[in-house]
Design a protein around this nucleic acid. Structure first.
Lengths: 157, 157
DNA sequence: TCCATATTGACACCATAGTGTCAATTTTAG
DNA sequence: CTAAAATTGACACTATGGTGTCAATATGGA
């Protein structure tokens, strides 16, 4: 048994799950006050960090979540005025999405709240470690995405 | 805005969320076949990795999830025969929990499935990186737990 | 021992995410 | 240009996790 659990990736999956739980209970207050659902916040971040305004399916792939779930979040964000539709020159049916000014303000607000908590922690902990980890985790994620693409090609529906 | 998002811990939170999504869509098949809910799997792992059979509230704290949620998972695992109650010398009402033989077999099975996927990935990727990351993430989590304890002392209910 | 307090287990209810499916539209191949 | 295939948006339904609350019991101090 412990032979099996000693696989590095298995351990990593478990550790990420625990870290996620810990993070959730630490930053939970942010979502509570902003009125954003966790998935909506995730979607906003994905859009902010995308090089160029993405389509719904693109966001889905980038986050590893089904497009239907993203669609729902995007629709809510649209009706709340945090997102706006942009015409997509490459595809007539799938518009691109970008934050409105209101969306930017919201994000700034939630980020500021999160920042307060984060700063508290980083005072007692080494910020360099977090910085280093972000890079390494991003690399790993890219690697996992590439692997997923190779293993099972297109999974649209 | 990007000034705010440049905080290392904020970035880390975001990256962990993405990684979690990616992992979920990669290992989702495992949960699907085992019949375990994600939270139940998490609880089993927490029990396996605990130094000594834990109580429900202890599992909750170790995972960063409310004890009620853990209780529900434990109850299901009990009725399914994957867990057994052990008397707790230190507390008459809160029993300790350990895997039954059936539970061990189940875990072995799910781990084996996960291992197949993991091995596929680790063939094209460096296992050392994962190993290193596990250690660093665990350290960070411990640090976050300590911080949470200091910030708001006891949150039982 | 007895009482106040804390902990625990249980349960109902709510919030959120995941899945299956369909029609509409668009893209692509012939 | 036409037809087949793929993509997209929408929606209902299901699954799962989170929260509030209560009674029961245990613990620790007077």
């Amino acid at each position: 048994m412990s032979r099996i659990r000693s696989n590095p990736l298995i351990q990593l999956v478990d550790e990420v799950a625990r870290l996620q739980g810990r993070i959730g209970s630490l930053f939970g207050a942010v979502h509570a006050q902003s009125g954003l659902r966790p998935m909506e916040d995730l979607v906003l971040n994905a859009i902010v960090e995308a090089d160029t305004p993405p389509t719904v399916p693109q966001i889905g792939r980038s986050l590893g979540h089904p497009r239907q779930v993203i669609q729902r979040a995007v629709n809510t964000l649209l009706t709340d005025g945090f997102l706006e539709r942009l015409p997509n020159p490459d595809h007539k049916r799938a518009p691109l999405f970008a934050l409105t000014a209101k969306g930017e303000r919201l994000k700034e607000h939630t980020d500021r709240m999160a920042l307060e908590i984060a700063d508290g922690f980083l005072q007692q902990d080494d910020p360099e470690r977090c910085k280093r980890l972000v890079g390494e985790l991003r690399e790993l994620r890219k690697s996992l995405e590439a692997f997923a693409r190779d293993t099972r090609p297109g999974d649209t529906q």
